[in-house]
Design a protein around this nucleic acid. Structure first.
Lengths: 346, 346
DNA sequence: CTGAAAGCGCTAACAA
DNA sequence: TTGTTAGCGCTTTCAG
């Protein structure tokens, strides 16, 4: 990866140009307290004149510090991730931290390689949206390096890292209760994989609601699948082909819900009228789709921001407590995609 | 950004452990040709035993090379960007390049800061989705640093960097011709800003098609706006409130088109029946929405991949020709959202 | 407040 | 094939 370019001007050259020593220039540059206003100006003048560009890598090497953080995502092709990312980015910027971004596409091997690369770059911390079957060995390896890690959305069984997620159990329960309250007794649960703890918990919540209502669950109404629009679209097809379809479907997340609603509409069915649909997350699209999606908000942007803040605190040693799990309470947002069972006008 | 962590083991320690010199270890590590199989194994054993992590920053400092590239995007909240990003990422991985990602949200100031940071990190090149009014001064500054830059989607007037985009003029023309061919004479053009060269060219293509057909353009049918779903949604509202609404609308891109179709449906109108809708890009959603969106594909993934390849070639000095513009020809993809004017069954 | 000297972890000559 | 010696650009003691 070499490239011929005008060799960049160094701090030493700036110092000489300004008639001071290198260390003075270094101090001036970083706004150290112990440098006179006069010298500082001279240094900055020289920097501008020579077109100096600070070498953060060299600085980090010497000072054994890091101003970058690794962002390991599973994918980006879902507004939910984007929302997370925006939240993270904003906070990171505020602290002058630069993100190294990678996506695993749910592959352990890629995740492995990604994290290795990030460690080689000496990131100061990692925000990790982990692949479901992340091997314990990788976890140990990171732990050994000693940099802080904030898990987002997907926790490890050991709970040995900070984690920030939502109360998925409650999310599932809120969702199912809302639907049951509307008179639905046959509620499907589609999308997402049982490999995901969030899936398992949402399902548990959904089952709890059933139990509380004294209703019987038809487990054939639970269909796993990818957590994508396409998957929602296809899964709904399956659902519609049941001999006795559910009257409502709780979708693993909004994007699945939107795919499902698309299929519904394609079949000439009206979501919220012919079948109630409920999602999780509250992505921007949820409030734009027709009908507007009733959903359980998981506050993705907020979560991203908190994850970044937490990571920053750890990196700065501002927080030294043992790993904490921040669990955000989800919130039902009633819009148009659910209705009383059989109601002709949602 | 300091953090107390077990000070990482260095190459020197590995070398000692393996009973060789540091440079031998270095060679072994990088698979240099001049090291015996035996020594190499010893070194790798020691690396594993000591939990050695290569310090890419230090290596880059010494060798004056870089294995990272800057990715400057305007936003991420559009599947079009995601598709680009996926294409870029894939190619970058193949060449062992790590992306530093940043989003400008169309702000010159943020773009400025972002690029500065990337330069400080000594990225080996930049893929730049530029903010419309990028000051010449920034351009010059990058040029002075001497690293390769590949512009994507938005070119600068000077054409002094490599550029990869689509033939927007043709895209606009293809689109309008398709619509005119279907019998439409009043075609709106909504979304996007005249600040964007792509907007201006698409509009020009649309005007050319009109001219070719000997039709008169009603300029009040051209409405600028953001290039977002929300914007498409709102813009369509305006369009529908015209006293004499167009029978077809050419949208700046797919995401605008989808927003527009949502509004249409909300008003009880059927896209492709009551009003023809045509987009640009061919994002995944286009083929999933109901009705499926007729669009002009701009091959985002492919473009991302080519941009990354070009950048890599420049970084490696594989291409030394003057800046080139790669213009990909767009392609009409007929689906369901356009129809003969007045046809009751699209 | 400023300067001199040492050294972060690594690679690149050059010798051996 | 391997070891020795410098030194990348910066920050950090520690004296002045």
């Amino acid at each position: 990866m070499k490239h011929d370019k005008p060799s960049p001007v160094t701090l030493l050259q700036v110092a000489k140009h300004a008639g001071v020593s290198r260390s003075t220039a270094s101090l001036a540059l970083r706004g150290g307290r112990y440098v006179s206003e006069e010298t500082r100006e001279k240094v900055f003048d020289s920097m501008r004149q020579l077109g100096y560009v600070y070498d953060r890598g060299a600085a980090n090497l010497r000072s054994k510090s890091s101003s970058s953080v690794g962002l390991v995502f599973t994918d980006l092709d879902n507004p939910f991730y984007t929302a997370l990312l925006i939240g993270i980015n904003e906070k990171l910027n505020k602290h002058n931290l630069t993100p190294l971004l990678g996506t695993t596409f749910e592959s352990c091997a890629i995740q492995e390689r990604l994290i290795s690369t990030m460690l080689e770059y000496r990131v100061g911390g990692i925000i990790l949206f982990a692949v479901p079957d992340t091997p314990k060995e990788l976890i140990d390896r990171i732990k050994q390096v000693g940099i802080p890690v904030v898990l987002i959305n997907r926790n490890f069984p050991e709970r040995s890292f900070d984690y920030i997620g939502i109360d998925d159990l409650t999310a599932g329960q809120i969702a199912a209760e809302h639907l049951i309250g509307k008179g639905h007794h046959r509620i499907g649960f589609i999308g997402g994989s049982s490999k995901l703890s969030s899936w398992r918990e949402r399902k548990q919540g959904y089952e709890n609601a059933y139990a509380k209502a004294g209703l019987h669950i038809d487990h054939s109404l639970i269909i796993e699948g990818a957590a994508t629009r396409e998957s929602g679209y296809e899964l709904m097809e399956e659902v519609l082909d049941f001999q006795d379809p559910p009257t409502a479907v709780f979708c693993y997340n909004d994007i699945v819900a939107i795919g499902a609603m698309m299929k519904l509409k394609e079949r000439g069915l009206i979501p919220g009228h012919d079948m109630a649909i409920l999602g999780v997350d509250d992505i921007p699209e949820a409030s734009i789709f027709t009908p507007k999606l009733t959903t359980v908000s998981s506050f993705p942007m907020l979560r991203g921001a908190r994850a970044a803040s937490l990571l920053y605190d750890r990196m700065e040693g501002l927080t030294t407590e043992p790993p904490q799990s921040i669990i955000i309470q989800p919130e039902l947002i009633v819009r148009e995609s659910c209705s009383y069972k059989g109601n002709k006008h949602p």
